[in-house]
Design a protein around this nucleic acid. Structure first.
Lengths: 362, 362
DNA sequence: CGTTCTACGTATATCGTTCTACACAATCTA
DNA sequence: TAGATTGTGTAGAACGATATACGTAGAACG
């Protein structure tokens, strides 16, 4: 009937012709917009199925939404992030939105480039996981697109939402557990501050950890918090320095699991037994914690729930909410072997490497 | 001068007016297209900087390229994939292209949905890592967009490229190493076949492993290849069945590292020592292999190089190559503690749990 | 000096949607 | 019964780039 049939791509026009209605009508059906009768909706849907029509997202982006949400992951090696992503999938299930991911490499300039690229590609909203940008940067981005941040506390921020666990409390939980287990000289190893704005959750955990020790009567110089970049070599060097110092710690808190697993490796490589000589605790309760060879005590921050909430917040923002909302969940300690010293800590002897490094695991 | 200045968004038109040239000229500069003088290029570039202009990707996508390449990752928990991604970043550095990632969840229908979504968003090309679709599906996709697959062998495919290591050879390397270390009853645990088309690299590794054992004189019923879905529970159940069978293996090859680490956990949880009672070998040489607590012998397949090559192939395809190209690299064994039994395997006694499960790691 | 290149620019149709404005009929209200 | 309202549908202008087709000036050539 219609004279034109040069192109082979199925467009909204093809559907309209097939269904015998206008292009605008099809568009309305597509968007579940107001002003279509049930009869028309049905007719159009059938044509779309018959032609297996898929709307062209780039074209939609020119005027309206793309139904794409961007997710910026600060890095890809963190075994905790998959939990969050499961939560995001939960939150997106049943909606038209699809997540596309950008992967930062620990540098805020790379992150910025990715965010720009996503904005240029007309994403409808953005979830940022563990990003390293300052709140001011986030405000700027929020003026272009709705965002929700995970792993960055900004309770006063109005232009964007956030979803987090209570990291200060989490840090405190760790200190309390160490003392309850009989460890006497707890220490923490945390991320170095090379990038101007490093992950601020680590700082929150440090504060909680330190405050709890203070509360238990520790003097300022007995609160030891060392730092190292992630990566086995840096961590090992710092662990070595710590354990060879005059009053070495008998328990170490690694600021996050992926990092604590490197601490675990370093401690054992130096010939110490875990948890007998040194207790080790991580943060996130990521999947590898449960492996027998790690058996790592950790703080569960309910990543999946955080991901779900973040997604809910984002969709609300996209739909028009302008009031900020900041979700916070209370973390919980999951005790495993790495912090369960069997001994009664009577003689307060300094730990030293137990004979040989454990050959079975060498 | 120009009457219109209603909108605030900086478009190609804004730049053109500022630079005093036509819109078409600016577009040419943007695309490094033919027919612009150095003087004009400079002038336009300056205006773009001054206005901090960023081209609108959706609009570009309507007629030309989006300068976005999609990367489909079969899952996000595999610690090997980051290596590949590093390679992709290498390959993309210095180009205008930016990668956006889709994350499958082990199901080919989810993967298909992601691929469609990416195509609808006008990506210029697609790299698929460890995807589970059949070659026929890939042909269909390849007719819409250039693709390169990683972790799927299709040497005869003409419509798309691939980048892989030689998985058959890799499987053989493992068997040879086990025998050289004195292990006498090697076994392999590999992925279950629940999804119709599961990762075909695992099958290649199985073949290499089995062929090598045959070559060493093993009888067919002594070549044991068990299967389990990934996930600690399934793997543990299968490992238990294997180790409690009449002639239990004394060495186990896990088809990939993320999987072998679960095997390691299961074996130790059952009270066996590694490598004394049971040797364990993985595949990929992912970062966690080097941790002291894992100390996992593995096969290095040079993921970063694979990622680099895949990217090169993709860009060539985007630029117009139609002849298929299939890159294959030869893998290499990296021996670590998990496969280094110290004993001389003289008395061929069956392994049994050494006394108690190692309390220190429980 | 006319013709033919070559290099550089411009004008404008086009991509596939969404959105605004409006037409029309049926129903409600005063 | 006139006027307002509601429900349903259409036409056509955007959106911001790219690609095509073409114009112009200067150089090269015979």
């Amino acid at each position: 009937m219609a004279p034109r049939q040069k192109s082979e791509r199925v467009t909204i026009r093809t559907v309209a012709e097939d269904a015998g209605v206008s292009v605008a009508a099809v568009s309305k059906v597509l968007r579940d917009a107001y002003g279509v009768s049930d009869a028309m909706r049905l007719k159009v849907r059938q044509s779309m199925d018959k032609l297996s029509y898929r709307p062209h997202s780039a074209a939609r982006g020119m005027r309206g939404q793309t139904y794409t949400v961007g997710v910026l992951m600060a890095d890809i090696k963190n075994p905790f992030f998959p939990d969050i992503i499961d939560g995001i999938d939960d939150g997106l299930a049943g909606t038209q939105y699809l997540p596309l991911f950008g992967i930062g490499r620990g540098s805020s300039s790379v992150e910025r480039a990715i965010v720009h690229a996503m904005v240029d590609r007309q994403i409808d909203g953005l979830i940022m996981i563990g990003q390293r940008m300052a709140t001011a940067d986030l405000d700027a981005i929020a003026s272009e697109v709705p965002i929700v941040v995970i792993g960055h506390h900004a309770p006063e921020a109005q232009s964007f939402d956030s979803a987090n666990n209570d990291d200060v409390r989490g840090g405190a939980i760790v200190a309390e557990h160490m003392l309850a287990q009989g460890y006497r000289r707890p220490a923490m190893i945390t991320l170095g501050r090379n990038d101007l704005m490093s992950a601020d959750v680590s700082q929150k955990r440090e504060r909680g950890f330190a405050d709890a020790l203070r509360g238990a009567g520790f003097a300022e110089h007995d609160i030891r918090i060392a730092s190292a970049d992630d990566g086995l070599d840096d961590v090992t060097a710092t662990v070595r320095a710590l354990l060879e110092s005059p009053e070495p710690p008998d328990a170490i808190f690694g600021w996050a699991d992926y990092y604590a697993l490197e601490v675990l490796s370093a401690v054992r490589a130096l010939g110490f037994r875990v948890p007998d000589d040194i207790g080790i605790i991580g943060y996130d309760n990521a999947a590898p914690c449960a492996f027998t060879q790690n058996n790592l005590t950790s703080v569960d921050q309910f990543g999946r729930e955080i991901g779900r909430q973040a997604t809910r917040l984002l969709i609300e923002r996209i739909k028009g909410r302008t009031q900020a909302e900041h979700f916070v969940v209370t973390p919980r300690l999951v005790a495993r072997g790495s912090s369960m010293a069997p001994r009664v800590k009577a003689g307060d002897t300094l730990p030293s490497p137990s004979a040989q490094p454990d050959v079975a695991h060498k």
